[in-house]
Each structure stands twice: as C-alpha cells, then as structure tokens.
C-alpha cells in the first residue's frame, strides 16, 4: 500500500516532465506516436502563429513538404485517437487467466488501427508533397 501511494504521488507530480514523453521503451508503439503527436502539435502551433502574423506566409518548396509530413501525421494519428476515445476498434476487455493470454491493448484490433493510421499518414503526406512540389510551382 505504501509503495502504491508513492507510485501514484510520483506520477501525480509529473517528475519526469517533458523527458517523460520519450520514456517509450517498455511501452507499445502508441507511446512513440504520443510523443510525435505532441511534437508535431507544437510545431503546427508555431507555423500557424507565423502564418497568422504574416498572412499567407509559407516556409517554401521543400519545407512545405516537411510541413505536410508534420500536419498529415498529426491528422492521421488524431483520427486514431478520436476512434480510441469514442471506443471504436478498441477490442473486448480480456480477463487474463493464463500467461499465454495477452491484453487486447497489446494483441488486438488496436494493432491494425495503428497500421491504418500510419498508412493513412503516408498517403496523405504523399498527396501533400505532390501539391507542394509539383502543383504549386506550376501555379507560380
């Protein structure tokens, strides 16, 4: 009991701060997606503020493609987060009785949702890059 309250207090105080975002080694891939979601979110806020300050400001050709990677990752992973929040494709909870059984969060439909989000990210980023690198220079 003592150890449990100490454990809870440690996490309530958020002692790790920002470095805790990257404590991902013992978790599933979603932990990396979480860290990347926060970083891309902060980068998007920085871009949006610059874009507001000078209307229509853009970082330019290749940087626009990089901006596309940042934004489309945040979008694709955000769709995954909304699905998880609303309880879609989470899987039935499993009462673990044998060591061979693993929780649905590790071996369930969630794994496919992660793959779906990453594939969606690649497709959207490719479309964005096409517009940034091919269509925009033609428009002038």
């Amino acid at each position: 009991m003592e150890a449990e309250s100490e454990f809870k207090e440690y996490y309530a105080k958020n002692m790790r701060g920002i470095s805790g975002w990257f404590k991902a080694r013992v978790y599933t891939i979603e932990r990396w997606l979480y860290a990347a979601h926060r970083i891309t979110g902060i980068l998007i806020v920085l871009f949006v503020l610059a874009h507001f300050y000078s209307t229509g400001w853009h970082p330019g050709l290749w940087w626009d493609a990089l901006l596309g990677i940042i934004v489309t990752f945040h979008t694709a992973n955000g769709i995954r987060l909304i699905l998880a929040e609303l309880g879609f494709a989470v899987g039935k909870p499993l009462l673990i009785k044998k060591p061979s059984q693993r929780p649905v969060s590790i071996e369930g439909v969630q794994r496919y949702v992660v793959v779906f989000a990453l594939v969606l990210f690649v497709v959207l980023a490719a479309i964005w890059a096409y517009y940034a690198l091919v269509v925009q220079p033609m428009m002038g």
């Binding site: 309530a12 105080k13 958020n14 701060g17 920002i18 926060r38 979110g41 902060i42 998007i44 806020v45 949006v48």
Partner: peptide, 15 residues
C-alpha cells in the same frame, strides 16, 4: 484546438 493543446501541455508540466 491549438490553444487547448498548449494549455494541456502547460498544466501537465506543473500539476
């Protein structure tokens, strides 16, 4: 969305 995202990060930093 942007400002609430920043707010969530800030209040998580200092509970």
């Amino acid at each position: 969305h942007a400002f609430n995202g920043v707010r969530v990060i800030l209040i998580e930093m200092v509970p």
